[in-house]
């Protein structure tokens, strides 16, 4: 278990709701849920996850810290916003789902190999390198995330789409050699590091 996790366990003891309110984006809304079930019934992916938002919110209040933070349910959210539009209490459910996922990730508790999490990590690393997304490298990284053989297979399968994008000038093969970026790369790295530092201090993550 990570140090950050041990610190959080110490600070909040068994009050997981307080921890969520302090450390999870929009976490202060969780107590407003009245357990009506509309979000659970509105989620298009609902039948495929273990814990619906309604259930996650109840689990948080019941102090089920491990079950919530190791759940892969938050990672299944596709940001369709169906639940947000319908929630009678106007909870920003989608944002809370992402907030929980991010918090679990930062504590090192998020499920390993969860595809959404892997893609999110690739995307972030790709983005902060130059301050711009390099789509070609991002696609390739995605194809090859499950090993070289699978990567070749994925790339072959997507060949037609790739060529089409090149023809339509939506994809530049030369991006493979470094690619475009923002002017002040070092400045961006400094900014991201500073933001991380502030966040970590506030949430006791460092």
């Amino acid at each position: 278990m990570s140090d950050a996790n041990n610190r959080a366990l110490g600070a909040y003891r068994s009050n997981f709701l307080k921890e969520v309110e302090a450390n999870v984006e929009e976490g202060h809304w969780v107590k407003m849920c009245m357990q009506c079930g509309v979000c659970a019934g509105s989620c298009p992916l609902g039948p495929h996850w273990q814990h619906s938002p309604q259930k996650i919110f109840m689990m948080i209040r019941a102090g089920k810290r491990d079950e919530v933070l190791t759940s892969d349910s938050m990672w299944m959210c596709t940001s369709c916003y169906n639940c947000i539009v319908r929630c009678p209490r106007k909870l920003p459910i989608t944002h809370i789902m992402h907030g929980l996922a991010n918090y679990a990730h930062r504590l090192g508790l998020a499920p390993k190999g969860q595809p959404t999490r892997e893609i999110a990590k690739l995307f972030w690393d790709n983005l902060v390198k130059t301050g711009r997304v390099n789509e070609l490298k991002f696609s390739l990284a995605m194809y090859f995330k499950d090993g070289f053989g699978q990567g070749i297979k994925n790339a072959m399968a997507m060949q037609g789409v790739g060529l089409g994008l090149v023809k339509a000038k939506r994809l530049n093969p030369l991006e493979l050699l470094g690619g475009h970026g923002c002017k002040d790369k070092a400045g961006i790295h400094k900014m991201v590091a500073k933001a991380r530092e502030i966040e970590d201090r506030r949430k006791g993550l460092a």
Binding site: G37, V38, C39, G41, G46
Partner: peptide, 23 residues
């Protein structure tokens, strides 16, 4: 014990189908 999330239609007999998750 559940607020119904949405209603769909069974077109064969015009019956409303209630979708949701109970609490």
């Amino acid at each position: 014990k559940s607020k119904v999330a949405r209603i769909a239609l069974n077109e064969a007999n015009d019956n409303p189908i209630l979708h949701g998750v109970d609490t």
